Amino acid sequence: MTPSSTELLSPADFRDLFPALDRWAWFDTPGSPPAAAPVAMALRGALADWERGDFAWRDWDAAVDAARDAFARFAGVGSERVAVLGSVAEGMSTIARALPPGSVVVGDCEYRSMLYPLLALDQRRNPVIRVPSVDGAVTEDGLLSALRDDTVLVAVSDTLTSTGRRVDLQRLRTVTAERGVRVAADLTQSLGVLAHDLSSLGLDYVLVHGYKWLLCPRGAAWLIVPEDRPADLAPLLPSWKSTDPPYGYFGGDLELPPTASRLDTSPAWFSWIGAVAALGLRERLDPQDVERHCVGLASRFASEVADIGIASVVAASDSHIAVVELGDSAGRVGRGLEAAGVKATLLGSRLRIGVHYFNNHDDIDRLVAAVRDATTRRRSR
């Protein structure tokens, strides 16, 4: 969804909604972003109401469907295709349990919430083909080369934070569709910053946890299922949320609705109260502007550190995540970043940064200066 121009937030307006940015240049959104003020306010309000007893639990519960509808609008799909879950692992386990016999293709470096539900399958019925990675990245070519005549699913994260490389989902989907192979894609590390057109991609399953780029509290996740096949899937954890009407508690039979809500898991209410506020904020950003801004800043960082001899692990000029190799300077860089008020993640000898719409050129200046200072001091010894 693209809001009207009168509703749009500029990068500066968006940045003003994050109090933590008064102190930090925040590049650790691949781990977790700081709280946006409207999201924190919604949670504080719910906590205050809870403490005073001025709440109705059904109002809290209504936030779940409100978040489902807001996410569906943002993703450009119908609400009937969206299940609300607590994690990506729940969604991937739901998909895995419903697979017909046949092999499954996945990268050997895939995120564990995607990988482990597949490894838990009966390997005689659904053998897992693990595609070797190069420098922590798997390519669409690697995944496609591993397809067999019996392959029933390819599972992949569109962006892995170990390298920042993006998989070409359109090419992957075109080839797999020709061969009748389903695709499950985890967009947790990109939806909210990269402008996906899910309707044109035609992915079978899309999984997203909202606590990163969508700015939600942890515990708000979604699974998008095929429009014509929600009944192919059964709930992983059948509960009071699995049936219609939603407020039946005792006795009865398990009668699943025909929509993706049949897969809903019992919600942690505060996660969804925060998710409603976060998605309302996200609807005030233009997806194309966000992608251009974030990819541009990440590319600038990679280019400037390359000028001082620090190479990117993977050349990923189209990504909002950059990972560079620091070698034996990693410890000094880590200390320098902390002293400079920069939040980023060290992965062994590598530095990972992720750029959101709230980051700006001053943040990049601060980051590059800290890296340059730490590495230059080493060389001058």
Score class of each variant (00 low, 15 high):
residue 144 L to A: 07
residue 87 S to T: 13
residue 122 D to A: 10
residue 135 D to H: 13
residue 162 S to V: 09
residue 159 T to L: 14
residue 87 S to C: 10
residue 110 E to P: 00
residue 81 R to N: 07
residue 97 R to S: 13
residue 97 R to M: 11
residue 127 P to K: 06
residue 138 V to N: 01
residue 97 R to H: 12
residue 58 R to M: 13
residue 85 L to Y: 04
residue 84 V to M: 10
residue 125 R to F: 10
residue 81 R to V: 04
residue 142 G to S: 10
residue 58 R to K: 14
residue 123 Q to N: 15
residue 152 V to L: 10
residue 61 D to F: 10
residue 61 D to I: 05
residue 95 I to Q: 01
residue 172 L to P: 01
residue 102 G to D: 06
residue 157 S to E: 05
residue 139 T to K: 05
residue 160 L to W: 02
residue 159 T to S: 10
residue 71 F to S: 01
residue 58 R to T: 14
residue 120 A to Y: 12
residue 73 R to D: 15
residue 150 D to W: 13
residue 100 P to D: 13
residue 63 A to W: 01
residue 70 A to T: 04
residue 152 V to T: 14
residue 169 L to Q: 02
residue 106 V to F: 03
residue 90 E to G: 04
residue 109 C to G: 11
residue 110 E to R: 00
residue 151 T to R: 05
residue 78 G to M: 06
residue 69 D to I: 13
residue 95 I to E: 01
residue 121 L to W: 08
residue 152 V to A: 08
residue 139 T to L: 09
residue 167 V to D: 00
residue 170 Q to P: 01
residue 80 E to Y: 09
residue 60 W to E: 10
residue 79 S to N: 05
residue 143 L to P: 00
residue 101 P to C: 09
residue 69 D to G: 06
residue 157 S to W: 01
residue 79 S to L: 06
residue 59 D to Y: 07
residue 87 S to L: 07
residue 114 M to L: 15
residue 89 A to T: 08
residue 89 A to H: 03
residue 100 P to R: 15
residue 75 A to Q: 04
residue 88 V to K: 00
residue 83 A to V: 05
residue 140 E to G: 08
residue 146 A to M: 11
residue 151 T to F: 06
residue 112 R to W: 12
residue 75 A to Y: 02
residue 88 V to N: 03
residue 143 L to C: 08
residue 131 V to W: 00
residue 133 S to T: 13
residue 159 T to I: 15
residue 133 S to M: 10
residue 116 Y to T: 12
residue 58 R to C: 09
residue 134 V to S: 14
residue 114 M to T: 09
residue 64 V to W: 00
residue 68 R to T: 05
residue 92 M to I: 07
residue 148 R to I: 08
residue 113 S to H: 09
residue 78 G to T: 07
residue 117 P to G: 06
residue 96 A to Y: 03
residue 77 V to P: 02
residue 72 A to T: 03
residue 166 R to K: 14
residue 119 L to I: 12
residue 142 G to W: 02
residue 63 A to L: 06
residue 169 L to S: 04
residue 77 V to T: 07
residue 147 L to C: 11
residue 68 R to G: 02
residue 92 M to H: 05
residue 158 D to L: 04
residue 100 P to E: 14
residue 61 D to R: 13
residue 74 F to R: 13
residue 77 V to N: 04
residue 106 V to H: 01
residue 62 A to E: 12
residue 110 E to C: 03
residue 113 S to A: 15
residue 146 A to T: 09
residue 82 V to A: 05
residue 135 D to L: 14
residue 136 G to A: 12
residue 155 A to S: 15
residue 112 R to T: 14
residue 148 R to D: 11
residue 117 P to F: 04
residue 79 S to Y: 04
residue 62 A to V: 08
residue 124 R to E: 15
residue 65 D to K: 07
residue 149 D to R: 15
residue 161 T to C: 06
residue 175 V to M: 11
residue 132 P to Y: 11
residue 149 D to V: 14
residue 88 V to Y: 00
residue 65 D to H: 12
residue 159 T to F: 04
residue 104 V to K: 00
residue 137 A to D: 05
residue 155 A to I: 04
residue 61 D to A: 15
residue 95 I to D: 00
residue 140 E to M: 08
residue 135 D to G: 11
residue 132 P to N: 12
residue 133 S to E: 13
residue 97 R to V: 06
residue 75 A to T: 06
residue 164 G to Y: 01
